[in-house]
Design a protein around this nucleic acid. Sequence first.
DNA 1: GCCCCTTGTGTACATTCGTACACAATATGT
DNA 2: ACATATTGTGTACGAATGTACACAAGGGGC
Lengths: 245, 245
Amino acid sequence: MYTRGSGVSTGDLSRLTRFDSASRSVHFRDQPERARKGMTTQKRRRPGETRDMLMEAALTLVGRGRHFASLGIREVTRQAEVVPTSFYRHFRNMDDLGLTLVDELGVVLRGMMREARANVLHADKLMDESVAIFVNHVQANRNFFTFMAQGLAGESQAIQQGIRNEMQFFASELANDLRNLRLLTRLSDEDLDMACELVVRTVAFSLTDILSISPEDEAELARIRRRTTRFLRMIFIGADHWQSS
Amino acid sequence: MYTRGSGVSTGDLSRLTRFDSASRSVHFRDQPERARKGMTTQKRRRPGETRDMLMEAALTLVGRGRHFASLGIREVTRQAEVVPTSFYRHFRNMDDLGLTLVDELGVVLRGMMREARANVLHADKLMDESVAIFVNHVQANRNFFTFMAQGLAGESQAIQQGIRNEMQFFASELANDLRNLRLLTRLSDEDLDMACELVVRTVAFSLTDILSISPEDEAELARIRRRTTRFLRMIFIGADHWQSS
DNA sequence: GCCCCTTGTGTACATTCGTACACAATATGT
DNA sequence: ACATATTGTGTACGAATGTACACAAGGGGC
């Protein structure tokens, strides 16, 4: 495995030994409390628990203001109270972890849709209720949605594409629902899809509004809800008059 | 923080490259070429040139797929061919640099508005031309806009707020222009502002579309242009029928 | 000329990072 | 029950980072 020794041998070794002694004092910093004393018992966990803890830890850090792209493996494992090398038992690298998180987005969105379908009874309350449900879900999974907002622009290509796909899927489901509700029936399938995409984007953008305010600021939250609803109403009106003008 | 490009290798490769780079004496890695030999002459530069180079370097790295939040001072100075400590002559930290970049956004947007005002002659071509101008500007300043898209969600609060403000300003300018063009005259000032904000958000979102494709992919670019225009048209129709339904 | 102020450079160091490797504890299949 | 696969832990090391400090070069005032 050591392909050649030539690489290191040219370096100034006396300079490097300093790092040895320097890092020794700090050495147990990464190990979680439980491991430090004895390690006679290895903590029992249900399968996949550490894996979940790692994802959870990443989200916690993101929720604490850090950007996912700047998180390191050690940082995450520290937050998860797990030894750094344990990370590799579950993920190949941070991108891999991020991708796994994106997979969860589908679950969350599906849950949101289910709730919306169950609660939206008449069309006239459709928008207010849907927006309210969305806002509630964001509030309930703030860290998670923060990660999504971050990933929408500028994360690894794969993560970005994953989020994009979920949004696309959500939009097409929305189009289905509208069809079933006999709304915007004058639009062609293609135009309806477009309108729904615009709706989803608008709601997604309002995500950044919600996340930029304090979670307890009910007044500002109400303002965002109201504004988002008005955005949607305007889009629906536009869709309703589409191609007729 | 380190090698985080679409992670394929599990370690063997990065191990090799590490040894490879270690074969050169580690010591002068950070110093740019010019400084390595002699340093009898200090490079002459016009005032603020290094500062600009640092900002440029950050944008270059961002354009190369890195996320701004994950950039380090050393990394940027290396790209700028400047010694690390030089950074502090111009910025307190990376956030400070980012904030300075955001300031430039105002300039760019103003230039875009000027061009739009000069070129949009009749209202019927308004949207197509404006979208085209926007797309062109994005293409011409790809790295810069990538940074903006990244900063929109999840960067430091200050950066996020800065971008948000610029968008707000742009929206209000747009409202002004529409007033002057005698468009959407039936809307109250408040409603017109809202509509313009929706327009700006929609265009901003299309930024992520543009940035996610290859710059040379003219076909896909045309598709994006077309779709964005249709989004805007739908919004305008909605605004035009606002409160009348 | 001289002084000083801004900017660039070089060195140093403690800290953090990713990750290879070997071993221990536990879970799982038979 | 026992062998095997999976997961967690401890150790080690070299590369990289942020930043403090002291010094050097050139420019603008007097």
